[in-house]
């Protein structure tokens, strides 16, 4: 899911960094110190999700669950995801410092968007809640993959087909993300519903 350092060109890197800085600033502004503890714990949980490998076909994929974080935190998911990505860069050298802007935008942008659009469905019936969960997982992953392919294409037109290949290879991951987010939302609604209505 991460784009490595050294792949993108300057305009894409700068654009990504500017948008991520703006998104993070909005997210931070909406966060007061009473909620910051919760957000940092969820940021850590998001990091842990990326260490969970679930089987798909003969291989396995790791979870991302950006959509879930968006549902729970709304704008707060932006800084939470950027921080988790920074931690991943330091621990595993996935992504990096200069490309953090683009990666942050690719993952946090769709997560926040899906969260803001779909969060109102969480209060509906069980079916609506499941639909919101699935769509949040599926759509945020789809948009992330699309943005990633877009960033590659904007850097170098020659990337077009490689980026398309990358997008197609993420299709199964989108379904897994959707299904898992749906189940987690159902679980949280039963076990600790307050988590899902944090942002109201």
């Amino acid at each position: 899911m991460h784009i490595s350092e050294g792949v993108l060109t300057a305009p894409v890197l700068i654009g990504g960094a500017a948008l991520t800085a703006a998104g993070t600033a909005v997210g931070l502004k909406k966060l007061d110190y009473d909620r910051i503890m919760t957000v940092s714990l969820l940021s850590a949980a998001f990091f842990v999700a990326s260490l969970i490998h679930v089987p798909v076909g003969p291989g396995s994929v790791h979870l991302l669950l950006g959509g879930l974080l968006g549902l729970i935190l709304g704008w707060g998911a932006f800084p939470a995801i950027v921080v988790a990505l920074l931690l991943q860069a330091v621990f595993f050298q996935y992504g990096g410092m200069v490309v953090l802007g683009v990666n942050g935008l690719n993952i946090a942008g769709p997560a926040v968007l899906c969260g803001l659009v779909l969060a109102r469905w969480l209060k509906g019936s069980r079916k609506e809640r499941m639909a919101a969960g699935f769509l949040a997982g599926f759509c945020s992953m789809f948009l992330s993959a699309l943005l990633m392919a877009g960033a590659l294409f904007l850097s170098d037109q020659g990337f077009l087909r490689a980026a398309g290949l990358l997008l197609a290879s993420h299709l199964p991951v989108m379904f897994i993300e959707g299904v898992i987010t749906m189940f987690v939302v159902g679980f949280l609604a039963r076990v600790q519903p307050e988590i899902l209505s944090l942002d109201t």
Binding site: M37, L42, A45, V179, V191
Partner: peptide
């Protein structure tokens, strides 16, 4: 589907525990 549901519940429980821990730490 059983596997995916189990992983979801495992992670959901992790979230619940993180949430409550955040409260206590705060």
């Amino acid at each position: 589907l059983h596997t995916y549901r189990t992983y979801s519940y495992l992670f959901g429980m992790t979230l619940v525990k993180s949430w409550n821990r955040a409260e206590r730490v705060h």
